[in-house]
Simulated scan of single mutants.
Amino acid sequence: MPSGSFNFPSARSACTVLLRRLRLAWREARPVVQLIFLLRFAAGAALGVAGSVYGAVNRPALLLAALGWLATTWAVYLLNGVADVVEDRANGQARPIARGELSRRPAVAIVWALSVAALVFAAAVSSTQVLLTAAMLGVGWAYSLGPWPLKANLAGFVAAVTALGVLTYLAGWSAAGGGRVTEPVFLFGLMMSLWMGLGGSTKDLADAKGDRLAGRKTLPVLLGDRRARAVMAIAASAVGWTFAVLCAIRGNGILPAAVVVLAGSAALSGTVLTSSSRGSRSAQRRPYRVFMVTQYCAHLALFGCLGLTSPL
């Protein structure tokens, strides 16, 4: 082939491989989780807009920030998939890395590319957005990797997952213009982040086998199945009732969203304490599905409270 010519078949093949890897990397990062992170970001932005006294929102900057945050959470969860391959295989997970469809090396390369893209998008918005993005990536790394990954113990799990939530709400709020952190921003962001950290532990019920193999100290591993379920029910109820009571007392306009969380906590408690969540892996994941549905419904309720169909 003459010097300087271009091999179109090879280029098409490389492009096909790259697109396939990106598609698998997206599946590995769990699209349903990525969507809820976008809703958290949007909620922070919506609450920031509702409490802003600075006029119109810079919508192009907000869109750039949202794209950057999507790249951030994608990188965090893809990295987690790379780190969790041992326990995922033991638990029979159908994710691409555990199944061998996506090897760890290209997955790590995609993590790096997404991280760089996230920081570039953030830099186009503000220095605050860069700091929040860097913090999110740092927490994600500390959760999955390092000599003492936070995922390996209960306190680390709750702290890291709660921090990922708080940072996401703050990123949306900052991208919408920042300003004063109003009570609805603080309360909704904090309580929904605690819901993540405490209610999210229900996913460990179905993963106890792999977690033991990997040396992780989750609630089911530490306490056994029965007592772990009781603690999960108490924790979920505590978040639901605290959120609802505080909103009712303060009258801050987001009570309907808090009522959704309260109802979700009751449903989660009922599910986790009964035989409906015992037996097969699918049954054991029912409390986690209740947890996820509650998050989605709470955010949609919040947008309804604010009279918005889309904060972007």
Rank of each mutant, 00 (worst) to 15 (best):
A208S: 11
A230I: 11
E183M: 06
F6H: 11
R89Y: 00
L150H: 02
A98M: 07
S282V: 11
S144V: 12
G55E: 12
A50W: 02
S52G: 13
Y77M: 14
I97V: 14
V260M: 06
A83L: 09
T218P: 09
D88V: 14
L78K: 08
K203P: 01
L137R: 02
L119D: 02
G240I: 09
A301V: 04
P96A: 09
P106Q: 07
A123F: 07
D84R: 14
Q34W: 02
A123D: 07
V76G: 01
V17W: 04
R226V: 12
A117F: 09
W69N: 14
A152K: 09
S265I: 04
G165M: 07
L39W: 12
G4I: 05
P149G: 11
R180Q: 06
W141V: 11
S144C: 06
S52T: 13
A175T: 02
L22M: 14
C247M: 03
L114A: 15
W26L: 13
I36D: 03
P106S: 10
W241I: 15
V221D: 12
L79F: 01
G165F: 06
A244Q: 02
G55N: 05
R95Y: 03
V32L: 08
A75Y: 03
Q34V: 02
L18Q: 06
G307D: 12
F291V: 03
G140R: 01
S237M: 15
G253K: 02
Q93Y: 01
A257P: 01
Q284E: 15
G224A: 11
P149L: 06
L306S: 07
T309Q: 07
A124E: 13
A61Y: 03
G55M: 10
L306T: 14
G240C: 12
T133V: 12
G100C: 10
L132N: 09
Q93E: 04
L38K: 01
D204S: 11
S10P: 01
G279K: 06
L273Q: 03
P147D: 09
T128S: 10
L262F: 13
L35G: 09
T218Y: 06
L102H: 04
A208C: 04
I254H: 03
L67E: 06
L150G: 00
T274Y: 01
G178H: 03
F186K: 00
A123L: 14
F37D: 00
S310L: 12
T218K: 03
V130Q: 02
L190G: 02
L114W: 01
S127C: 04
L22I: 12
L131R: 10
F6Q: 10
A155V: 14
V57L: 11
L67M: 14
S52W: 08
L213A: 14
S310E: 04
F157K: 08
L255S: 02
L67A: 15
R59L: 15
V158L: 06
P147V: 08
V85I: 13
L308P: 02
V139I: 15
Y169D: 00
R40E: 00
V231F: 12
G177V: 03
F8L: 15
Q34N: 12
P287G: 05
E87V: 04
A228D: 10
A155Y: 08
A11F: 15
R104T: 15
V259Y: 10
S193G: 05
L213E: 13
G177L: 08
S13C: 05
R229F: 05
G172D: 03
A61V: 02
G177T: 07
I234M: 14
G270S: 05
L150W: 08
T128W: 04
A65R: 00
G165P: 06
P31D: 12
L302N: 11
A134M: 09
N252T: 12
